[in-house]
Design a protein around this nucleic acid. Structure first.
Lengths: 207, 207
DNA sequence: GCCGCGATGTAGACGCTGTCAAGTTGGACC
DNA sequence: GGTCCAACTTGACAGCGTCTACATCGCGGC
């Protein structure tokens, strides 16, 4: 509920977050300064300190919102899939990568804990839980290999997280288009999970 | 060749790189300032500018050295394995993760291109080539699944890159020890590659 | 042998940053 | 209508990267 603000400015906290996010997305988090954010919001350089303890607190709030968006992106991608348990797992990964590539600055910020000293984010846990549940469901359905679920969760997370950052931070880009690379990687992951699954299970897509 | 320096200071360029690396490792790259580096090296705040055009150039040189170390770590890990082609591929991944977890600040810096504007690094290409060759060898030996080699390369790279960064940047750490998590993830990767391989191939380790 | 000159390092300044301290404004409530 | 406190402003400080100008060291040509 909150119902704060609407004093002088209207909702400065929101305006600051929006301005900061815009700056993070087009200049990168390293180039973000509180004074520039304040300037964009049309207030003095000290006004932000009435809403955020310091720079890290603002970035922490931004990161928290990011995890909410990440969770929704994963859920949206999963909702588009009805078929199998493994397909839903792969779809969650697609949602993860979609978000990361659509909001590079935001995504990178979220995984830079030194910038927002340990801002705890429940949505982060929720997004992780989506992954854990999807892996468990795929294993239960015999559509993914057995073995320790934790290791499989970590591997799937590593694949999508690593792919997103490699695409954003390296010259990987030169090879193909983004959509092709993403689809190719996810199809390979699907095939590996299918191939090593206890049940037979044909790969969902094979060309 | 080279044989520069040894004028006033001895080898200030080397000293600056060492000081910067030390600071990156214990404070993080965000906390690195040229002035502090100069202070550690015992020179004035302007001296570094005779060896590096600006902050980005120093970080670029540091990143370049990092890729050399990464390459060596991968080669060392591979050299310890004689057996199969897939085992050598997994070993390269182990070397990758080993380096990342042993030198977190250095590793993160290497994959933050906005900090060292496009400093081109041949060692980076060489490390990538090790991966490409290992994947090709494993496929040729029938110890890894077929399909487009590019997709498999990207997936393997994503796994180790993603794992390293997740381990460093999230609270993943709470679950198990580093060695266990790393070994578990690599074993799972090995099993997936084995399970989906055209040839039979039993997983190297299964418990 | 010495001398000039470029490579190396110093000194000071500028505008930028994050943050601390103190003053001002204006809506909400009694 | 008066009071209070959150929201915001103003001003200051140290530290940062980088620019310009100056000092010093030692090698190569005469």
């Amino acid at each position: 509920m909150a119902r704060k603000a609407a004093y002088h400015h209207g909702d400065l906290r929101r305006a600051l977050l929006d301005a900061a996010l815009a700056q993070v997305e087009d200049e990168g988090v390293a180039a973000l300064s509180l004074r520039e954010v304040a300037r964009r919001a049309g207030v003095t350089h000290q006004a932000p300190y009435h809403h955020f303890a310091d720079r890290a607190a603002l970035l922490g709030a931004l990161a928290a919102e990011g995890f909410g968006l990440l969770l929704r992106s994963m859920q949206t991608a999963q909702a588009a899939v009805k078929s199998g348990a493994r397909a839903r797992l792969v779809a969650a990964g697609k949602g993860y990568i979609d978000f990361a590539l659509a909001h590079p600055g935001h995504f990178r910020l979220m995984f830079r804990p030194e910038l927002h000293q340990g801002a705890q984010v429940p949505e982060g846990g929720a997004a992780y839980q989506v992954l854990v549940d999807s892996v468990a469901a795929a294993q239960a359905a015999g559509e993914a290999p057995g073995g320790p679920p934790g290791a499989l969760v970590t591997l799937c997370w590593s694949v999508v997280h690593g792919f997103a950052l490699l695409w954003l931070d390296t010259q990987l880009s030169t090879e193909t288009t983004r959509k092709d690379a993403q689809a190719g990687t996810l199809a390979m992951l699907d095939a590996l999970l299918a191939g090593a699954a206890p049940g037979a299970g044909s790969g969902t897509k094979r060309r």
